[in-house]
């Protein structure tokens, strides 16, 4: 499976409070998403388009276990995140909610410009941007399937429905 999208480029340490600010956590998921990343890019929520990809540095999503950090990116239409490394719980939550997140330790952000078109090959675990390409982690098939189905609940749901149809 291949995915093409515009790139948003962020640095190191984008934490869960930047993704889903604590003071807006009582709002609806849609309203909360409007504040996603505003602390580092005020125009993010208003300019992001469905299918966009986030490229980032170390420890993307570090911080709390709140699933809203992932949910906000999903609501805004982000199709994948590629980062040098992730907060462990964030990446778990991302897979479970159906957001593709691949770590890419060698990713060189200085070779990337905002809104460059990038191509992500999920199965091979390769990211292409212009002349450059980087090896990302390769996810096992069961995780790729789960993410494609839209996350863990949808994946199990599909299995239940498949059983009923038999």
């Amino acid at each position: 499976m291949k995915l093409v999208g515009r790139a948003w480029v962020f640095g190191d340490g984008i934490d869960t409070d930047v993704l889903a600010p604590g003071r807006y956590m009582s709002l609806s998921p849609r309203e909360l998403a409007d504040h996603c990343l505003e602390a580092v890019r005020a125009d993010f929520a208003s300019n992001v388009e469905t299918g966009d990809v986030i490229l980032a540095g170390e420890n993307f999503g570090i911080g709390s276990s709140r699933e809203q950090a992932v949910e906000s990116l999903k609501i805004l239409g982000i199709s994948a995140v590629v980062a040098k490394s992730f907060g462990g719980i964030f990446q778990r939550n991302a897979f479970n909610l159906g957001l593709m997140c691949l770590s890419c330790p060698t990713l060189d952000l200085s070779n990337l410009r905002e809104f460059d078109l990038v191509e992500l090959h999920m199965k091979a675990g390769v990211l292409h941007a212009g002349k450059h390409s980087w090896d990302c982690e390769k996810l096992p098939e069961f995780l790729r399937n789960m993410i494609n189905d839209g996350g863990l609940i949808a994946h199990l749901n599909k299995q239940s429905n498949a059983k009923e149809d038999k």
Binding site: E67, N93, N96, I153
Partner: peptide, 8 residues
């Protein structure tokens, strides 16, 4: 683990 994980 979070709520989605626990449901699984």
């Amino acid at each position: 683990i979070g709520a989605t994980d626990m449901a699984g």
